[in-house]
Design a protein around this nucleic acid. Structure first.
Lengths: 343, 343
DNA sequence: ATGAAAGCGCTAACAC
DNA sequence: GTGTTAGCGCTTTCAT
């Protein structure tokens, strides 16, 4: 390693080689103008001196960044953790950097982060909205600025968005159907807000399955709320206060199932003996480790990959890939194993 | 919302208000030079026009960024997920942004990411090294550049680093002692590499406890490896190939425990009936949900908070906080409950 | 209290 | 092939 590592810039290289800094700049970027010989010399010297281009200057003058901004509502949950890991990995392999921001389910933070990312001149934006997000103005703004935008998993209700989602309706339908076929017909739904696609579609899937099998829906058991533990906790208490418990629960997310579980245990209810729970999400580690829940498995890794691919397509080809929606299949996992008895 | 959202810059505001852009710049930054009245007008207009300062230009000229770079080896695991969430949250509350990069346990990626972050002119760097990291040259370079650097959880063996870690030695000691007091003396250690602090200290804690209680250590059961599932999987197979299994396992991380678990199940071994497993990490969600493992609980949230506080101190006061090491306590959790019978 | 000039480190025209 | 000239949008002296 060289000793002089501080503040090596184009001009330093230029002086040492007695050429202009433009030559250096071009050589480093493998511009066809420059001779092979020159490029060799420049790269050698750059390595030796430990030259690292100044990201800020570079992007300010070129007005692109090779950065994709990512905005997620949560991070310390397996589903989002997996999405994020996958997005990072796919971006890295395509020579893009990710700048991740976390909105913590707060619309105000989400807005602030998007503005930050825009001011960094990101080349594109991948967003999974908060449970609070109802105002789409910020997304309109992104669109007006012609910054490619892809939603992942959670999509606000606007026209012409590009998105990567899962088959929420079908997943909820299958999970509900599975309960019914097991003769568990007293089913509650801990659903998400209807202003978000996943809340709406999952509730619709649940309702359709119930209707198709002529099972009456108990309106006390149709809970609409957020996606976090506290929502599940509160959901239990609301259901509990109304009388006898259902035999089965379909929960809109894994955290909601956890919250329900906590409240149930505190009331001496045994899970899954007294109440069976299926939730959207993903059992961790290859579904090896036993869980008290069953899952509507969401392919997080694929979601991340597809979102990056789509945003790259949008960056390179803004018109052709506008408003494309990719929907991936879910899979009902019973005791960690894929369930084939239902569609 | 205003319609003209694209490319509003200082000069645009300046023209509208018939002042120079310097005045605007100062007003926006609440500089004492500017009159209250002027500031009011400027802020109003900025809001109206949706002005967002250009991050690139701003930081290029001021040569600071209000950004802290974060480098972690993994993300889709609860422990790192929690650290990351906590770092983001604490940074946000202090008006800093985080740029997160993920090395995926690869030293080469780690190096590349650190260079990227340096070229973004981050104000400081929080790093948890990969299991491969043995060359400290890149960290020396950071130090030479006078960029504040804090290690979190995983620290390379260099002199004068600032770090936030847990009591790895004590945690491993307590976990081992607990086994011994339960009369489980055939204990294997699935340890981490000795070139990283956590590998070394946890192995030392295990060894000390065994020695203090005069329990012989079976060298076939002292595995040194990485921190991921595959290492646990391989660890099982190495132990299994040597003859009878131990009664208990101390695993250096949760993923290692998972890998061991998978391999064990495949061989018809029952966990925890045949082999009890304790690992470093954290049961998820308030330790409510039953787990087949016991845990040496690491306070991830506090780790993140302390790391951010320390880096902010270093940024504001580079000399005073140099080489400070914060060590947090671990807690042995048995069946999700804190164990008081051992230290 | 306000502004003019210079410059952060780089890239993009356009000459030569 | 290589260099010259501008300029990205902001902040910083230093005048006024």
């Amino acid at each position: 390693m060289s000793k002089k590592v501080q503040h090596v810039k184009l001009e330093d290289l230029a002086q040492k080689l007695n050429v202009s800094k433009v030559t250096i700049s071009k050589a480093l970027r493998d511009h066809p103008d420059i001779s092979i010989e020159m490029k060799r010399k420049v790269n050698l010297l750059a390595d030796e001196l430990g030259y690292v281009p100044n990201f800020l200057a570079k992007n300010l003058s070129s007005r692109k960044s090779n950065i994709i901004g990512l905005v997620v509502p949560k991070i310390a949950h397996f589903f989002f953790g997996s999405i994020i890991e996958s997005v990072y990995d796919t971006a890295f392999k395509n020579n893009y950097e990710i700048v991740l921001t976390v909105s913590q389910e707060m619309a105000a933070r989400e807005r602030k982060h998007i503005l930050s990312l825009l001011s960094m001149k990101v080349d594109g934006l991948i967003v999974s909205v908060t449970q609070e997000t109802t105002d789409n103005a910020i997304f309109e703004r992104v669109k007006n600025m012609k910054v490619p935008l892809v939603f992942i998993d959670r999509v606000p209700t606007t026209e012409c968005t590009s998105s990567v989602t899962v088959d929420d309706y079908g997943g909820a339908y299958s999970a509900t159907e599975y309960f019914i076929k097991k003769r568990l017909t007293k089913i509650a739904h801990l659903g998400g807000y209807n202003h978000i696609n996943i809340g709406k579609a999952r509730t619709a899937g649940f309702t359709s399955a119930m209707n198709d099998y002529n099972i009456p829906i108990n309106s006390d058991w149709m809970i609409e709320g957020g996606f976090a533990e506290e929502d599940g906790y509160e959901g239990f208490n609301r259901i509990f206060s109304k009388g006898p418990l259902p035999e089965a629960i379909l929960a809109v997310t894994y955290p909601v199932a956890l919250g329900f579980y906590e409240a149930a245990i505190q009331h001496g209810i045994s899970i899954p003996d007294d109440v069976q729970i299926t939730c959207f999400g993903s059992n961790s580690y290859k579904n090896m480790v036993p869980s008290v829940f069953n899952f509507v498995h969401q392919p997080a890794k694929e979601l991340g990959e597809e979102a990056v691919k789509l945003i790259l397509n949008l960056i390179n080809n803004p018109t052709e890939f506008e408003c494309s929606n990719i929907e991936l299949k879910t899979q009902l996992m019973i005791n960690g194993k894929s369930n084939k008895s239902v569609a």
